[in-house]
Design a protein around this nucleic acid. Sequence first.
DNA 1: ACCTGAACACCGTTCAAGT
DNA 2: ACCTGAACACCGTTCAAGT
Lengths: 182, 182
Amino acid sequence: MPARPKTTDAEIVAAARALVESHGHDQVSLADVAAAVGIRAPSLYNRFADRATLFAAIDQEAWTELNAKLRASAARQREPAAQLTALARTYRAYAKAHPRLYALMWANPSEAALAIRSETVAITLAPFGKLVGERDAFAAARVLAPFLHGFLTMELAGAFRMAPGIDQAFAHGIATILKGLE
Amino acid sequence: MPARPKTTDAEIVAAARALVESHGHDQVSLADVAAAVGIRAPSLYNRFADRATLFAAIDQEAWTELNAKLRASAARQREPAAQLTALARTYRAYAKAHPRLYALMWANPSEAALAIRSETVAITLAPFGKLVGERDAFAAARVLAPFLHGFLTMELAGAFRMAPGIDQAFAHGIATILKGLE
DNA sequence: ACCTGAACACCGTTCAAGT
DNA sequence: ACCTGAACACCGTTCAAGT
């Protein structure tokens, strides 16, 4: 007898993502996710191997979405330095728009997420190639990417809490790195 | 009737830290910590308000320890650029020597830990003052610190897994930032 | 094929009872 | 003053039973 589904995998991931965005991934239980789509926690195991697998799906969705935004923002610029500045701004805007999602994106590095993340780096390689040459593009990306991630983690963790001018600090960091790479 | 202690606060924190260093903070239960010092989990509540408070104590201990190492490494150099390079190397060495502890140090920002962290930034202000002037020292620190933290988080998360020459990449990042600040 | 309740081992935390 | 076992509400996960 073919007892029919009350929901879909995509709907479950979307509901889980919404819960993560509003409460943070370690405040979201499988019972919460199940309730959000009208089923019970054990039913999730028909679709996802375990909690980590379900949350990895959110992770991958988010990285794919971020990569699309990054590509679009770079395409809007002509000069490589302008492209890199736009990429940095877009990255920060995404993290600040989805702070708890951003935390999840770095919390549990699944193999699949690592692969998508390396795409993120690849996006910066084209403008860096034009700016510093193909040979040094990878090395340059390894300066910018850690700055971006570190800045956002610190900012979201409240490390700059007391400090005014965070936007300027970010712009100054990007400009400093681009100047140092010249 | 004065039933006497089986352990001390310091011993508990030390045991908890050791467990965190070997298993990661989210794999360590209060029962594990209690067992390591010969008591039961509920007894921990006589000494620490809750799990977060106990782990915050580890957190603060680690930041204090790291700050001491940073100060010592800077004191061994004369030139400001050499001091900053030494600070960066020491910071990375600490994170790589205690990867799971480093993760805890950024996981749950307690108020006290944020205060000690700001000391960490302060340590870099003196050499930056000599390098770029007092006026720009703070801005400069806000370029280096995110790079350091981002690089380490990414390295420890396996983001550079496939890539050779991580040591050179780190050195190149520091050199690039110092050059950009000139 | 998918969902369910019941069960399991495990959490953090509280508390009355012991010394 | 500090420790304990028992209890509570909650986890993730398994599984036999339902449709």
